[in-house]
Design a protein around this nucleic acid. Structure first.
Lengths: 238, 238
DNA sequence: ACCTGAACACCGTTCAAGT
DNA sequence: ACCTGAACACCGTTCAAGT
């Protein structure tokens, strides 16, 4: 299962986010031509310019000026590369002043998270597993859990509250980015439009009445409003 | 862009879900060896037995007893196949008795939706675009919008409330199925565990204090609890 | 220790031809 | 009208060898 002669096992990423060199002596053997940092930087360029779909090991090797196989000497596989890239993005999240009031503090933190992800929806897929924006973005989670406790929740319920907000956020990004992608590919008139155009008012009266406004209604950005409703429901009444 | 000689354009799916034959005369030409229904049924078998990842055009052709290219004569591309499959699953959603009380009615409808998706998380990805479980599952949306209006929301706000619930549900399924997949592949000790094992209590005191309970806390199923909080926040106070 | 070329076992989709 | 074989332009990853 391990690469012959390669160093397997995830290398710890330091708090400042700089990838540390492996602890081994570097004196012996052939000097490296490419580094992890080079690889991540190249991946970053590709993703920003062409999207994640284009981030293939071959494309990345070309960008680095090497061969696909050289990459496997620095990165276990494509998944590990994505985690590395994630950390790289997480480090770039702005850390704004947040309101003191717990409820508003949670909302503000969630909005920061949302805005970062909305710009790069592909992060959500890579992220969903670990429910955190990489180690360097854990402060957002800390803020939410802490504020939820300050608002009167137990530790357990604070974590569950954070999770509910995380679910809501992931869902919003997922749905809206998928819808955006759909709209981008014009050729197909969207299954949804077709369905809504021929609703039976006897069976689905509300939807039939709303059919012509449906697209407009579901295109409005309601993330913040829904978030506030969720937070209101999660925190003890004031 | 269109298949030479093939019939492009999405064919309407009838309300009973049976795929109607194309309106053209069928008298002339070579008789078909496989039908759309055959293809969808075969796809269904593969997905249930081996997962969506294994649903490739080649694998599907083998299951149908044909060649990959024959499929393209019945289905525009892989995406259309997924929509067809979606409809097929939507038709199978049980339609239980729902409570009369608006708030409980919404919760019950959301739970139906959630349970169906939780069993087949891959549907969410295919679905997210069209924010509906295929035409035959639109009754769930109707129920939610109708109940939200019965609870006192305007039509617009009722749609937005439904959307918030949809986001929350999609997110929950996405996150939890990703986590499940992670847990399934044992070899890698999960980036998260590693990060949580070495938190700095000075910087992230809440998370550090919760570190050893984190996995347990985030494995609990809190969908229903979060859903109730969200619905409480969305509907006017009673 | 680090990098390479060739290969394995796949993808979705198109083209041109056959019945 | 429907189906086929061969091919195009890709994937991630492994193996064995080179420096």
């Amino acid at each position: 299962m391990s690469i012959p002669g390669g160093r397997s096992g995830r290398r710890r990423v330091a708090d400042d986010g700089v990838v540390p060199p492996p602890p081994q002596r570097r004196a012996t053997g052939r000097p490296p031509r490419i580094s992890r940092a080079d690889i991540v930087a190249a991946a970053h360029r590709i993703v920003d310019a062409e999207g994640v779909a284009r981030l293939t090991m071959r494309r990345l090797a070309a960008e680095v000026g090497s061969t696909p196989m050289a990459l496997y000497h620095h990165v276990r596989d494509r998944d590990e590369l994505l985690v590395l890239l994630l950390e790289d993005y997480a480090r770039r999240i702005p850390r704004p002043e947040l309101p003191e009031q717990p409820r508003e503090r949670i909302v503000a933190a969630a909005l920061v998270l949302h805005d970062v992800l909305a710009e790069r929806p592909w992060l959500v897929t890579a992220l969903a597993t670990d429910d955190l924006m990489g180690a360097t973005a854990l402060w957002i989670v800390e803020v939410m859990v802490d504020a939820a406790m300050a608002a009167g929740l137990s530790a357990e319920r604070a974590v569950h509250a954070y999770r509910a907000i995380w679910y809501y956020t992931v869902g919003e990004i997922t749905v809206r980015s998928a819808a955006g992608r759909q709209r981008a590919s014009r050729d197909r008139p969207s299954y949804r439009d077709e369905v809504f155009a021929s609703l039976d008012p006897a069976e689905l009266p509300r939807l039939a009445a709303l059919a012509d406004r449906w697209t407009a209604l579901t295109t409005v950005d309601t993330y913040a409003a829904g978030l506030r409703a969720l937070v209101d429901g999660l925190l003890p009444g004031s």
